[in-house]
Design a protein around this nucleic acid. Structure first.
Lengths: 213, 213
DNA sequence: AATCATTGGACAGTGGCGCTATCCAACTAG
DNA sequence: CTAGTTGGATAGCGCCACTGTCCAATGATT
């Protein structure tokens, strides 16, 4: 497959594909001559993942690069590879570690995790992006003056634990190891808007039930 | 309170406050003279909401304007006002209604809602932003070649129904009607990143439990 | 052999958006 | 009287995901 064909099959313009090649999101094709390279199905699949991450997940290009590097890193075991890919996915801006709101949010998260018995997250996770991506918006909320309590967060956390269980169940059904990290990334990112939209629909349904149409 | 004081109390620069005034996110202060206006606590609260929507919720300025218009519209009853505010919050890009993937996604949602017995959402919701904001990412997933089934979505939907229940429970605890729509918006938008972060942490915890550290 | 399109590569330009900076005349607090 | 602030207008900035243009080398077509 040549660049123009890759473009046709994927629906992504050649200019954009060139951009992704330049940004090292998409690996180079197999060089045939100085002015021709051969692309295959793996490029098509990768392109699909890139588009999904950028368009559906709104992941910045620089982050996509890191995530894909982790997905491709064969020196990691497959579990670590999966973890590394998710690890490389820090959403949202970081919280200022010195701000009092951040301290308060950290304490809140600490209590929450203790209450839930999520010991891995509590003991090993303080440096993980997931942990920080939880502290950051909580700090932001506190800073803005919106109160947050452990009691309020608990049911949300329990629901999300359930969701995460489903996520992994779905992942384990896949037999293909090579694509697992890739699929894990898809599952983690691409379903976020779906989850949020489901919440919105559920809110409308709940509103109609409680207060009538 | 003068502009400079509003800026100090809120931590938002005067230039940015002027920008919000210009964009009609923040109502004008009470005019004292040609070159002086008086701002009060309501401006401070509104400013906080604006910052939260933009920074935490990543809601575009134009959308914030619509949401706030709904929040302020006293011609609506309070339930409708709440609904209108949420209604004005369409996240993400629209799906092309003619695309086959959109058709398929629509059918999928139809089946899902029937299965769940969410009759309001099914019969009245086809035009609601929440409904469309569900169809859009599903269509995007299908288009990109990631399979989605009703069976997979069901548990997610049930979890989110539970989350929505908590959302409304929290809302009903508030006695103040005037701020309800405002609080509803906060609850709907500001907790989204928290929810997603909780899912990420839960995923790490689950991963550690299933596959070890 | 002669034409015309395509390729990889480099690089400047674009458009959207949330600010941010500057300037101004009118005013006002000390 | 003077230094500072205000509302208002307008231009510019910084980021980022592209997008458009140009080029020489090469391939495909006639």
């Amino acid at each position: 497959m040549r660049l123009s064909e890759l473009s046709e099959h994927s629906g992504v313009s050649t200019a954009t594909i060139k951009y992704y090649l330049r940004e090292q999101l998409l690996p180079q094709g197999r060089r045939i001559t100085a002015t021709r390279s051969e692309y295959d199905a793996s490029h098509l699949r990768r392109l699909r993942l890139i588009r999904a991450l950028i368009q559906v997940g709104k992941v910045p290009v620089a982050t996509v690069r890191e995530v894909l590097a982790a997905v491709d890193d064969e020196s990691l075991g497959r579990t670590n590879r999966l973890g590394a890919a998710l690890w490389a996915l820090p959403r949202g801006p970081e919280a200022d570690p010195d701000a009092p709101a951040t301290q308060a949010a950290g304490k809140l998260v600490e209590e929450l995790l203790t209450e839930l018995g999520w010991d891995f997250a509590r003991t090993n996770g303080a440096l993980s992006p997931a942990y920080r991506s939880l502290v950051a918006p909580l700090a932001r909320l506190l800073e803005l003056g919106y109160p947050v309590t452990v009691a309020e967060l608990l049911p949300y956390a329990r629901q999300m634990a359930s969701v995460a269980g489903h996520d992994f169940d779905a992942l384990e059904k896949l037999p293909d190891d090579a694509e697992r990290a890739e699929t894990a990334v898809s599952a983690a990112i691409l379903r976020e808007p779906v989850l949020l939209a489901l919440r919105r629909v559920a809110q409308e349904e709940e509103s109609a039930r409680r207060y009538g149409v």
